Simulated assay, not measured.
Amino acid sequence: MAEVADGPPAEPQARRVVYCGVCSLPPEYCEFGGTVKKCEEWLKNNHPDMHQRLYSEEALNASLSTLSVTARERAAKDAAKKEAKAALAETRDAERKAASKVQIKRVERNKRKFVTVVTGLEVHGLDNKKIAKDLGKKFATGSSVTKSPAGAEEITVQGDVSEDLYDWLVEVHGKEIPEENIELVEDKKKKGGS
């Protein structure tokens, strides 16, 4: 028979879990992401006690001693592959950002009415809805996110604010978008035929 404790049941204690600032996994699982070296550096700078517990010589030797020689070699190959794949993805993303253009078009609606259309912001990691809201406040006009005929999202701002918008993008989001990647385009509506 089981013995019954005399006192009230103990309250469960909440655990404080640390998440990696690089890969957002708990540090015990960073090895399964592709950025092991960066994760280890982050852990060493932000949580030295946990780094010592996970990456000290004794901890590494203890975990390696349980693996066979072939498993060790395979683990080393897998880690190298994951790291190379992550580095390749990072360089590909940087190249894509460098090659992509943000277009600011001034489109004539009718007679002397214009709208300004901005495309290509999402490639640089900017949120179109937030930018549209900021532009609406900045220029005191209507601003919305719409789908283009090509299927991409674009921001439509009422009025001819293309040059002011260019200056604002360079000033506020100059870190994310290089100035040479922003281009102004004027798109005129074709007049009905004669």
Rank of each mutant, 00 (worst) to 15 (best):
L43M: 09
G7E: 15
P48A: 03
Q158G: 07
A99E: 11
K138A: 05
L169M: 05
N128V: 09
F139D: 00
V102G: 01
V115H: 06
Q158M: 10
L88E: 15
K82Q: 12
V18H: 08
K85N: 10
Q52W: 12
K129I: 14
T91V: 11
E108L: 13
E73G: 12
N45M: 13
Q13N: 08
C20W: 03
N181E: 01
P9N: 14
K85R: 14
V18T: 03
A84L: 11
A84I: 04
K38R: 12
A80K: 12
E31G: 12
E90K: 10
K147N: 10
K138G: 04
K101M: 08
A2F: 07
E83K: 09
K175Y: 11
V117K: 06
A75G: 02
L43T: 00
H173E: 04
M1Q: 10
K82V: 02
N45A: 13
A5P: 15
D167L: 06
G142V: 14
V18I: 08
G21H: 07
D127N: 15
P9H: 15
V36E: 13
P26I: 00
G34F: 06
A99S: 12
R109K: 15
L126M: 04
Q103K: 15
A140G: 03
G34M: 06
R74Q: 14
A86P: 09
S143I: 05
G136N: 00
W42T: 00
L165Q: 00
K38C: 02
R92N: 12
A59L: 03
A99W: 06
T35L: 08
K77P: 04
L67K: 10
E11K: 14
A152E: 14
S24H: 15
